[in-house]
Design a protein around this nucleic acid. Structure first.
Lengths: 368, 368
DNA sequence: CCCGCCTTCTTCATCGATGAAGCACGCGAG
DNA sequence: CTCGCGTGCTTCATCGATGAAGAAGGCGGG
């Protein structure tokens, strides 16, 4: 049998027992300066005796208009977020801002059922929301905006899109993905590579069939991060006089090593074989490296591989990548939200710095 | 100037605008079957027009008596939790139970100020709590129990201690640390080692001066996990006829590589030099391995090193360790809590399996 | 033609607290 | 003696919703 949990007492009951008003009991807990020390002690003692657990935070939150927690909603659910070290680093950053402020961190559950996914945002008992990395047309963001709570967006959509969605001025935190992507592509082109290939994670929320995609599809991606990184690679390629249409771009689903491995297999099967692989994330690159090992390709002798993020694993792999301050992004987002909640202006949204990190997986193009 | 956020409308206001009762508007959102489709549409349209964000989850939560979120309180604050891969894996596990149930996960903030630390537990707007890995006498647990909410404890305190604290029958999730520790110590003894040393993380919540500690201090540890792992090592040592008093035990603070490195330095400075190092966690072992590299000791030629946890990094280091199902512990704890909330009985608390994983950091004792 | 039931909506009370304002008393100043 | 004011506690209204129970109309069955 489920053990019958005794209903916790209420302020009112304690008040009756002590013989004072409910408000006085409330003050005994929340505003000790509002009553004499003696009475306060008497109230607290009675509360203890009755097993009163203290003011119900839910009711207090309703009355006060704040509950002391901020929510984080992530494009993919929690299960995915905890699997991706970059997503965890972002959470760690948000936590590092929330914790000193005494604010809790509510992780909003995801769901494969769109209705439940949105309901979770609507039901989150929080003072404000951080929405991270969702597609331009994701109803999740619309639901978050509809809450009417202070809101901060990480990575995507971009500020222009937020304005179009009726939320202009929403603080945004991210990096200049396009410029950063151009930098890493430029690095490879400078090394003499002329046959590039790309392994990309999702471009749209909808399920896809992994495979090569053309420029039109790339430009139509609703994930701004994906779109911009691809555009950055293209910028660099064009600058070097390369025909972008000739660059195979593999479109996988999630940002996982498995997808990276499949993507590498796909683009390496094209003829002529690419000499440089641009991966949109380090996790994809990790999978790509697995594929090269399996195929017996030397890195960087036969093939250069670059990632994106500079995840914790990147250094160990010797991966050339783009470093972006993931944890700092989370911290900045959390802080911006807390600033909004406090009515402080907070600094204007600005892209954080990102930069190329050259390690050992990239080298000169092989002599053709 | 802080942009003046318009007060969101209320159910009541929508009701007046539509010309129906508040309850009908409520039903339009929460119980569509309770009113005609036509009226429902009219209500929703008006709500949209007025910019009504939908029923306030806080108020609904108060009335319904549940908010759809479970809280997780961790001994050390969030900042530490996110730094420790084992703690993250535990969170991932809890999330993997909460998410399919549509439940949010509230991470309770820690604080160096004891009062704020407790207040955070009292203020958490949740339906139930998971308290993870706190000391036997930690007021945090008392505060959690005082909330009167469904509660699940991970790792420590142990069930007997929970009963003593007035919370008998509280579901507990963990492993048999003592037996597991005995197994890894036994492994080293079987390899012929006779000069063991131990590097331990915290034994008490209070700040300590790191250094070697005697058996009396070990037995008095208020962290049950620490106490039991040390007891397990001792069990194995005694079984092999070793005098435990001769085994140097280093007591550091947190479970970090830095502490592990300092601990290894300390115990390796004792004479005669130990040939086997038992570390209470993989993170400590990671630091110990750093120390051995610096000291020019061959592992396992000169020194065997064992960890505990089988963290994600352990395989890469070739670390012999104890595998415990950390993520599964989190999942089980989350599920047990959800079962309590649903009034389901739930399986009785039972220790999850843990077992020795032998890799390459342990080998035969060097010929003396 | 009447009854009972279902659908659709309403009324009423309530979840558990706190902000704002008010009253009574005691005390020091004028 | 009286006024003014701070202290200590109370009263009142309110935060925004939802459960339980009830009332009006429509409809099929006997």
């Amino acid at each position: 049998m489920p053990p019958d949990r005794p209903r916790p007492g209420t302020l009112q009951e304690v008040a009756v027992a002590v013989g004072v008003s409910a408000k006085t009991v409330s003050n005994a807990f929340s505003r000790p300066d509002q009553l004499s020390a003696a009475l306060r002690e008497r109230v607290l003692a009675t509360a203890r005796r009755l097993g009163y657990p203290g003011p119900n935070p839910l009711a207090a939150g309703l009355r006060r208009g704040r509950v002391g927690a901020i929510g984080v909603a992530y494009d993919n659910g929690l299960s995915y977020a905890f699997d991706d070290p970059v997503a965890v680093a972002l959470l760690a950053g948000v936590a590092s801002a929330a914790e000193p402020a005494g604010s809790g961190l509510l992780l909003v559950p995801g769901s494969s059922d769109p209705a439940r996914r949105l309901a979770a945002v609507g039901d989150a008992v929080v003072d404000g929301l951080v929405v991270s990395s969702v597609g331009d047309d994701d109803p999740l963001l619309a639901a978050a905006i509809a809450r009417g709570l202070p809101l901060v967006v990480v990575d995507q959509p971009r500020p222009d899109r937020l304005a179009a969605l009726g939320a202009p001025g929403t603080p945004w935190v991210g990096v200049d993905d396009r410029a950063a992507a151009a930098a890493v592509a430029g690095h490879l082109l400078d090394l003499g590579h002329r046959r590039l290939a790309v392994v990309s994670f999702g471009m749209y929320r909808d399920p896809i069939t992994p495979g090569l995609v053309d420029g039109r599809a790339q430009a139509a991606a609703t994930y701004a991060v994906t779109r911009d990184r691809l555009a950055g690679y293209r910028d660099a390629a064009r600058r070097a006089g390369l025909d972008w249409a000739g660059v195979p771009v593999f479109h996988g689903g999630d940002s996982t090593p498995g997808v990276g491995e499949a993507g590498a297999d796909a683009v390496l099967a094209t003829d002529p074989r690419p000499t440089a692989l641009l991966c949109l994330s380090d996790r994809l690159a990790e999978g790509a490296l697995r594929a090269t090992a399996r195929l017996g390709l030397r890195v960087p002798g036969d093939l250069s591989v670059a990632g994106f993020d500079d995840a914790a694993t990147a250094a160990g792999l010797g991966l050339t990548t783009v470093r972006q301050p993931t944890r700092e992004k989370g911290r900045a987002a959390g802080q911006a939200l807390l600033d909004l909640l406090a009515g402080r202006p907070g600094p204007p949204p600005a892209a954080l710095p990102a930069g190329l990190v050259v390690r050992t997986t990239t080298g000169p193009a092989p002599a053709s």
